[in-house]
């Protein structure tokens, strides 16, 4: 299991569009991908759950990857989040 702390930079936080792009990308990995925020775990492969997390601009999340391709998943997903998730 590997993890990393990341600050969300998107102006409107984890909204529909970034959340769906992130979930889509997370779903391409074999590993379980979890977003830890505010003491709760959210399945990163689910847009719905990501949105329920109410992650705002400036919030810090912990991205946890667990599985066969965990290193690759963590590196690529955290880069995607840090780059502003396509916004």
């Amino acid at each position: 299991m590997v993890s990393k702390n990341i600050t969300i930079k998107n102006e409107l936080g984890m909204h529909m569009r970034p959340a769906s792009l992130l979930a889509k990308m997370a779903a391409t990995y074999e590993s379980n991908v979890t977003v830890k925020f505010n003491g709760k775990d959210f399945n990163c492969k689910s847009v719905m759950l990501l949105m329920t997390a109410l992650i705002k601009c400036g919030s810090e999340i912990e991205l946890v990857c667990d599985g066969a391709d965990e290193e690759k998943a963590l590196a690529e997903l955290s880069e995607f989040i840090e780059s502003g998730m396509g916004e």
Binding site: S20, A23, A27, N43, K45, S46, V47, M48, L49
Partner: peptide
């Protein structure tokens, strides 16, 4: 399109 995508979500249909 967002509605259609919603039913793809593991937390919904799953």
């Amino acid at each position: 399109l967002g509605h259609a995508a919603m039913m793809d979500d593991p937390a919904m249909s799953g």
